[in-house]
């Protein structure tokens, strides 16, 4: 099997999985789900590490380190902020926190 076709297969199957797994999300969880998904794409940190760890030019090293800082903010901050949202969600059950911030 052609290697490019393997990657295409993984991509297309992932698209269907991505849609299916969140298809039944309740509307109160829209914002935390968005936030959690946002944290997951912070995994670009892994890409930033791979690129930075194999460079030998100073400019590329600096750019790579900036990318690592940004990606780490995305990943770590994303998971922490999602957890805070969900903590609140569990504590105050009757009130829907997902509506916050939309109304102003």
């Amino acid at each position: 099997m052609d290697e490019a076709v393997v990657w295409l297969t993984i991509f297309i199957l992932s698209v269907f999985v991505g849609i299916e797994v969140i298809a039944k999300v309740s509307s109160t969880l829209h914002t935390p789900l968005m936030s959690g998904a946002n944290a997951i794409h912070g995994i670009i940190l892994l890409g930033a590490i791979l690129v930075t760890g194999s460079t030998d030019s100073t400019v590329a090293l600096v750019v790579g380190l900036v990318a690592i800082v940004l990606a780490a903010v995305n990943m770590v901050g994303g998971f922490v902020v999602t957890d805070r949202m969900l903590q609140m969600f569990v504590r105050k059950k009757p009130k829907a926190p997902a509506a916050d911030g939309k109304a102003n």
Binding site: A67, L70, V73, G78, V81
Partner: peptide
């Protein structure tokens, strides 16, 4: 993520998303 107030969560997510996009572009 700890300092942000509950009502400011959406813009915090936006900011985190933005820096993630920036990181991807730099990579």
């Amino acid at each position: 993520a700890q300092r942000v107030q509950m009502t400011q969560m959406p813009q915090m997510v936006a900011l985190f998303n933005g820096v993630g996009g920036g990181a991807a572009a730099l990579v």
